[in-house]
Nucleic acid binder design. Structure first.
Length: 924
RNA sequence: GGGCGGUUGGCGCAGUUGGUUAGCGCGCCACGUUGACAUCGUGGAGGUCACUGGUUCGAAUCCAGUACCGCCCACCA
């Protein structure tokens, strides 16, 4: 190692080790009865995905836990995989097609899906390769894809089971329609954003002019944000208690331009305070209006096409015009006709497609839904009982809040990439239904049975003929399922569920599935899920519901929600904002370990990132490299093969020597306890920062420096080795590559690979408070001397005098530490006996040590000022403690311990003050 | 509109059941070629813990109110 550079170069190291680890099967795990399982299923990234900082963070966290548990002796399994990401992936391929001036419709469904698979085969593995660059220790033999054959079986199985139970239904409702993707979306996929729009006040002429006088206008004014939907109006509504309009209830108005007659109805829904208190009712383009339509048995009229253009119901003028163009044009026309009263700016919340950000059109259509209430009850209960815990805890409440207000889930998508809905129709019966249903105009409320719509079978197999009419023209539902309808099964579908249970789709299990099923029994429920807050509802909540429904057990007991990656200005990091930092570039420049450690070392929940943040990790890796290099360089070749804490215990048994060794070993063991505790509570940052503090500030800055006094000493060597080995192990979950590389260079090691080595157990007998206090005394003296601001290169002699017998002994033995750490010569002056009086404890005694430095306090004036300032501060503190101790209330009511502490504090301050005063006198 | 958080030195954060001279990292300033490391070391400056009131012997910590910031949900036409 001495031949090696003083710079750590990750490039030489990372790919090499990742290959070896896999070749040796370090990450592969199989169920075994003798070991406890620990399992995490990856949040499957989209096949279209390219590794971003969010992934980097997410996967670092998972890998830390997986590696930690692996070292702890668990059968630690991390299941990797990808998600077919229906709309997102289809959009990518459609864009490619567009470049060739083709559409998917021209290609046809079969050819298009073929092309999708082709694309996926070529590009789908990219993100997986990128995860590997990060060192992710997934069991790569178990990689799954949500469109895998076996996985798809699970999806179909679930659909059929839920259908048979009445938990999946086909319904006609207002759904979120994306005119660009041309598909329905679930509520979760259509997040609302504030939009600066207008409120248009439109006059609807009354059919009959008011009889009395000509004061009253002959129209009613309606305020709307979406005037173009007026062609779908089938009524106006007012609040029944609104005095202004009471007389109008039941009266008719004329819908402008379309010149249709509308009735004014009364409904409680209408808020008299808003707008004019009159609302246009458009049942097929607004969820509220749809409900109103049902209540009042109105007609529904569709006036917009699926692609966002207006249809024939919008009159010839607007037919075929884009909805937003139509809005502008219509407003112009209304102005001309003097039917536009005014336009007011109005901020309101509008749904947007989460894939392409197009404004959502609330749209009436027939879709498939999952009834959520029957599933949510248990999922809520398990969380509230504490069987599933969220970290940080606040997400618990957000989950509960959502679950309590859960609504049915629209699962059908009008795209081709995905699991096709396993429902079969008789064409003959379906056509009959269509004929009855005037496509763009319907009487509400709608009550249609599945049979009436031509559905003849729900399952995988295509029926031969219609049981009703005997027709042999059978077709499958053209829609596919929401991607989340497959990913909500992830924690058990990755293990090949279902095969040993009676299947609703009657497929014989393959041999492969049988093997997988043993794993399902063993690894399910998984241990922990690590993900981002954005997908709590999309994914986490639904997995809990499906796990309980189909496995009868929760899918995981812990959910760790990590923060959002932001730029240094606090904006969310995203490709579209152009503020993204590419993790692969960071790996290239600083190394994967530096990336990982830097990410974990950022305090707080959200991560504010800028490129220089990664220097932190790089610098630390370099420090680790050099400290290791130094130790290994100096180690004698004949070190025992396996140095354990037990050996150290023996070596350090002697009472009066090796204080620094006792101290660092004590600190190290305490560190192990701290890290175990922090990991137990998912406090990754805390564990990292404790490790950092120990390694850099305790081990390197103090212990290694002291070890240099006699680096060839046998005990020192053993302690150095044990510390290095342990530190490497503790660091390994965070920084796997560098620790493995150094591990291999250790002259003595029992375990071949650090990756599969065992986690160090703390030896509590080695945690010594006495060693800590004594070492702190030495430290204080060193710090005090350093405070004098001496130039190290000048040889000075420091005279130390103290009134504490313990400290005198300590300094007699460990003067060498002070000398090494200050580069000064130390002379101990033992004062006369009468000075030795205060014996409150070694810590206090250390502070009372008076230190004289020959030939060079930096400046007497500055020094005096500093001392005076400090004395003043101490005076204030003494006053405070005095007041407490004089206060009867405090003496009567405070616990004894607090009073004792206060007394002790006062004495400490007084001794300190005395010592400072003495120093001040010396300066005079 | 409903729900949930936050406010501690220039920035990002700790601060366990109320009792330590309020800590850490980054940044800043000064010094340093000490036989692992300048991707380093040493020292230093910098905070009346958002505000107001209350509970208490004692409040950054508990309670109430105010101000500001943020997040999630929601059908304001």
């Amino acid at each position: 190692m001495e031949n090696l550079s003083t710079r750590y170069t990750p490039k030489d190291v990372e790919d090499k080790w990742f290959k070896i680890w896999n070749e040796k099967g370090c990450f592969h795990t199989e169920s075994s009865p003798n070991k406890d399982p620990y399992c995490i299923v990856i949040p499957p990234p989209n096949v279209t995905g390219i590794l971003h900082m969010g992934h980097a963070l997410n996967n670092t966290l998972q890998d830390i836990l997986i590696r930690y548990k692996r070292m702890k002796g668990y059968n630690s399994l991390w299941v990797p995989g990808t998600d077919h990401a229906g709309i997102a992936t289809q959009n990518v391929v459609e864009r490619d097609l567009a470049k060739e001036k083709k559409t998917r419709y021209e290609l046809g469904r079969e050819k298009f899906v073929e092309r999708m698979w082709e694309w996926t085969g070529k590009n789908g593995g990219k993100i997986i390769e990128q995860l590997k660059k990060m060192g992710s220790s997934c069991d790569w033999e178990r990689e799954r894809f949500t469109l895998d054959e076996g996985y798809s079986e699970a999806v179909n199985e679930v659909f059929v089971r839920l259908y048979n139970e009445g938990l999946i239904y086909k319904g006609s409702y207002i759904i979120n329609w994306c005119p660009r993707c041309q598909s329905a979306l679930s509520d979760e996929e259509a997040p609302h954003k504030e939009v600066q729009g207008n409120l248009y006040y439109i006059r609807y002429p009354l059919r009959k002019k008011p009889e009395t006088g000509n004061q009253k206008p002959d129209y009613v004014v309606v305020a709307t944000t979406r005037p173009e939907t007026m062609f779908g109006d089938t009524a106006l509504a007012v609040n029944p208690n609104d005095k202004r309009y009471k007389a109008l209830i039941g009266k008719k108005v004329i819908l402008p331009i379309a010149e249709r007659e509308l009735e004014i109805i009364a409904d409680d829904f209408v808020d008299p305070e808003f707008g004019t208190g009159v609302v246009k009712v458009t049942p097929f383009h607004d969820p509220n209006d749809y409900e109103m339509g049902n209540r009042h048995k109105l007609d529904g009229i569709l006036c917009i096409n699926p692609d966002g253009t207006m249809n024939a119901n919008a009159t010839e003028n607007y037919d075929g015009m884009d909805r937003f163009e139509a809005r502008e044009a219509l407003i112009e026309e209304l102005k001309e006709r003097k039917l536009l009263e005014k336009i007011e700016p109005h901020t309101h919340s509008v749904g947007h497609c989460y894939r392409c950000h197009t404004v959502i059109e609330p749209y009436f259509s027939e879709q498939w839904f999952v009834r959520m209430k029957p599933l949510s009850g248990k999922a809520l209960e398990e969380v509230e009982k504490g069987n599933i815990n969220f970290y940080p805890r606040r997400w618990h409440k957000i989950y509960v809040n959502w679950m309590e207000n859960i609504r049915d889930w629209c699962i059908s998508r009008q795209i081709w990439w995905g699991h096709r809905i396993p429902v079969w129709y008789c064409k003959n019966c379906y056509d009959k239904y269509l004929k009855n249903r005037h496509a763009q105009r319907l009487k509400l409320p709608l009550e249609i049975s599945d049979k009436e719509t031509g559905i003849i079978h729900v399952g995988l197999d295509k029926p031969r003929k219609c049981p009703d009419c005997g027709s042999q023209e059978i077709f499958q539902d053209p829609d596919v399922l929401d991607t989340w309808f497959s990913s909500w099964l992830w924690p058990f579908a990755v293990f090949g569920w279902p095969f040993n249970e009676p299947s609703a789709i009657s497929h014989q299990p393959s041999a492969e599935k049988k093997v997988l099923n043993a794993d399902l029994e063993y690894f399910y429920p998984t241990s922990c899920l690590i993900t981002a807050s954005e997908i709590i509802f999309f994914w986490v909540a639904r997995m809990i519901m499906s796990g309980l429904k189909f496995m009868g057990k929760i899918p995981f007991s812990d959910v760790y929600i990590h923060g959002t990656v932001r730029d240094d200005k606090g904006r969310k990091m995203s490709k579209s904002l152009g503020n993204a930092i590419d993790p692969l570039e960071v790996i290239e420049k600083y190394g994967a370990d530096a990336l990982r450690f830097s990410l974990i070392s950022i305090p707080g929940e959200d991560l504010y990132l800028s490129e220089n943040k990664f220097e932190f990790g790089r610098n630390l890796m370099n420090k680790i490299w050099n400290a290791s290099r130094f130790i290994i360089m100096n180690l004698e070749e004949n070190k025992p093969q396996d140095i354990s804490f037990k050996d150290i215990e023996k070596l350090l048994a002697d009472g009066d020597s090796y204080l620094a060794e006792k101290w660092i070993i004590s600190e190290l063991n305490q560190l192990i306890l701290d890290i175990d505790e922090a990991f137990g509570a998912y406090r990754f940052y805390e564990a990292a920062s404790k490790l950092y503090d120990f390694f850099r500030h305790k081990f390197c800055d103090w212990y290694i420096e002291i070890a240099k006094i006699d680096i060839k000493d046998e005990v020192t060597q053993s302690v150095l080795l044990v510390c290095l080995k342990t530190i490497l192990k503790l660091l390994h979950p965070y920084v796997p590559f560098i620790t493995e590389e150094i591990w291999q260079k250790l002259p003595a090691k029992e375990e071949e690979l650090i990756t599969t080595s065992s986690w160090p157990g703390a030896d509590k007998k080695l945690i010594s408070e006495a060693a800590g206090e004594q070492f702190d005394s030495i430290k204080e003296i060193v710090l005090k001397i350093r405070n004098e601001g001496l130039k190290f290169r000048v040889k000075h002699t420091v005279r130390i005098s103290t009134n504490h017998p313990g400290l005198i002994d300590l300094l007699n033995t460990y003067k060498k530490y002070v000398e090494k750490l200050t580069h000064l010569k130390v002379e101990l002056i033992v004062p006369s006996k009468e000075v030795i009086k205060e014996a409150v404890g070694s810590k206090v005694a250390a502070m009372s040590a008076s230190i004289y430095i020959e030939g060079g306090l930096k400046d007497f004036g500055i020094e005096r000022a500093r001392l005076k300032k400090e004395i003043e501060k101490i005076n204030e503190e003494i006053l405070k403690t005095d007041n407490h101790l004089k206060n009867k209330g405090f003496l009567n009511k405070a616990p004894e311990k607090a009073i004792e502490q206060m007394k002790k504090k006062k004495v400490e301050f007084e001794i300190r003050r005395q010592s400072l005063k003495k120093d001040l006198e010396e300066l005079a």
